[in-house]
Design a protein around this nucleic acid. Structure first.
Lengths: 118, 118
DNA sequence: ATACTCCATAAATACTTGTTTATATAATCC
DNA sequence: GGATTATATAAACAAGTATTTATGGAGTAT
């Protein structure tokens, strides 16, 4: 049986993993906060009103998955969002949504008619 | 301390929950497949090459969270994507991304400068 | 009625993950 | 040096979740 590419493409795992990383309230709040500019750990901690260890842990997870960048200055660690990484997720996610739109509407964009997801 | 709305807004939980629902390879594949048109359970099962029970379970989760719709015909259940629900997630998610862009670039869209997420 | 197909649900299992507790390191200040 | 601040990490715990196993029910055909 011939299957659709979007159903067999191993890249789906990567998309799922990325979505899983950000599908947490605290992590979404962190990204949202840092989108306003660089912050150190204790600032994030105070803004979100969660423990220092929990803050540090989430920041680390987001950094390891490429969503955040970090720089040290004295005893502080400053975190900021990696917009390229967000854009990648945005793009891939949007390809899913666009694909859906294409399949659903008759006025689909022609150049995307033959494209596959991921 | 005055906190940013995006950091305190309880709506973040809903966004996180929605993202968590779709942050699974099989569920992404289901949405992707159904975006090509309505399918019954056994068709999804065969396309994804997973067990009938697992297929049924994921379809049910996606239906309960509003991402899919279902109709019965004889002994078959046909599932299809709920584009309104996807659009809602798209919109909210995009507000996050757009907000980030606003905060990061000088050529931000003026009308969004004062807006908050969610 | 019997057998078969399609689908749903419940229980059990295995695995992941968010959070807390405890502790360690490194820089700064007195 | 000693105390304090800022951060990281490891272990333990609790809660959730994807998957499998087992089973039942409902429609269809012979």
């Amino acid at each position: 049986m011939k299957k659709f590419k979007c159903v067999t493409d191993p890249g789906v795992a990567g998309l799922a993993e990325s979505l899983k990383i950000i599908s947490d309230p605290n992590r979404l709040r962190i990204i949202c906060l840092l989108s306003k500019g660089e912050r150190c750990v204790c600032e994030v901690e105070r803004e979100l009103d969660i423990s220092q260890q929990l803050t540090s842990h989430h920041l680390n997870v987001l950094k390891d998955s490429g969503f955040l960048e970090m720089r040290k200055e004295g005893t502080s660690s400053f975190y900021s969002v990696n917009r390229d990484r967000l854009k990648w997720l945005d793009d891939v996610f949007m390809e899913y949504l666009d694909y859906r739109k294409v399949a659903g509407s008759e006025k689909a964009r022609g150049k995307n008619q033959e494209r596959h997801i991921l």
